[in-house]
Amino acid sequence: MADQLYLSLWFPNFRFETLPATMVSVMRQFALISGEKRVTAASVYPISFTEAPTYQRIYVNDDRAEENQDTSGSIIENAVAEATEQLHDDMAYEFEMRWKLWSPEVASGYPDINPESDPDYDVDPEYESATLDPLWKLQPATVRILGFGPKFDDASFDQNGHIRIDFGLDTPWLAETLEDEQLNEDATKHIQQNVEMLLAFTLSVEKNCGISSRLLWTESGEPLAQKLIDRLQRVN
């Protein structure tokens, strides 16, 4: 079953007023690994995530973004500065960025024919259930980078980290949408490439952002590494 994947970061002697600069540092590492240097959305939540955002901005990052000064707000430093202009210790600051991960597209072997338009067409049940080998493509995926005020959600940063990265579902690293028999050499290669992206970002943050500790974890509590090992062992 798909599971939410997170990376929590803690910093030594952390002072809340340094949160904007610390977030910029982490987001720069993500941009370095992903090649995507702009923020796609920013939100500020008061007290807890059950409250409506007090600030929200969606950025349009198209081909004009590199040339048009009107889109300069999506540059990491600018987006963080604007969202954190009012820095309150009971708020959480969320920034969305994107990277591209390999994802399978599974096509059915069933012919593209509408049975209602051809009632005499008969389909072999074995052919009807057949599937083609998945076609792997690089697809954009959203990553949310959050910085927590010390009083947000009853000081949940103790568990969540001063900064938490939400990767979304762990599907890109496990390919759970595929049947075991579809997890062939090509699929294994692309899963490995996704894992390498995740590890590269994690190690880059560890090396360059001055963290004191980090934790890669899933909502279920089951380690991603163990889930990946179990997945691959089923087909090897």
Rank of each mutant, 00 (worst) to 15 (best):
E179H: 07
K189F: 09
A81S: 09
A200D: 10
M197R: 10
F16K: 06
Q182S: 11
Q69N: 13
A225F: 07
I145N: 02
V60W: 08
D90V: 02
D118R: 08
L216D: 04
R214I: 03
N208C: 06
N160D: 10
R64M: 13
A42V: 09
L19D: 07
W217N: 04
V143I: 12
I163G: 02
D122F: 13
E82G: 00
P46C: 05
D124M: 03
T22F: 01
D70N: 14
E36R: 13
D89L: 08
A187P: 00
A79F: 00
F95W: 02
F95D: 07
M91P: 01
E196N: 11
L215E: 11
A42E: 04
R234L: 03
R234P: 04
Y93N: 06
N78C: 01
Q192H: 08
W102F: 15
L87C: 09
D63C: 06
F14L: 02
S43Q: 14
E51T: 06
T71R: 07
N236M: 09
N208P: 00
T71Q: 13
P119Q: 06
F167D: 13
A41G: 09
P140M: 09
T22G: 05
E126R: 13
N61I: 02
L228Q: 15
L178C: 08
W217F: 03
I47D: 15
F201N: 12
E219R: 15
Q86W: 08
C209W: 01
W136H: 09
S103I: 03
D120V: 01
L138H: 11
L9T: 02
I229P: 00
E176C: 01
D166R: 05
A31Q: 06
S103Y: 11
E85A: 14
A41P: 01
E126K: 13
T177A: 08
V44Y: 03
S108M: 07
G161P: 01
R98G: 05
L203W: 08
Q193H: 05
P140V: 04
P134H: 01
V123S: 13
A42D: 05
I113L: 12
L174Q: 12
N13E: 10
F14I: 01
N184I: 04
E126I: 12
I145T: 02
V205F: 05
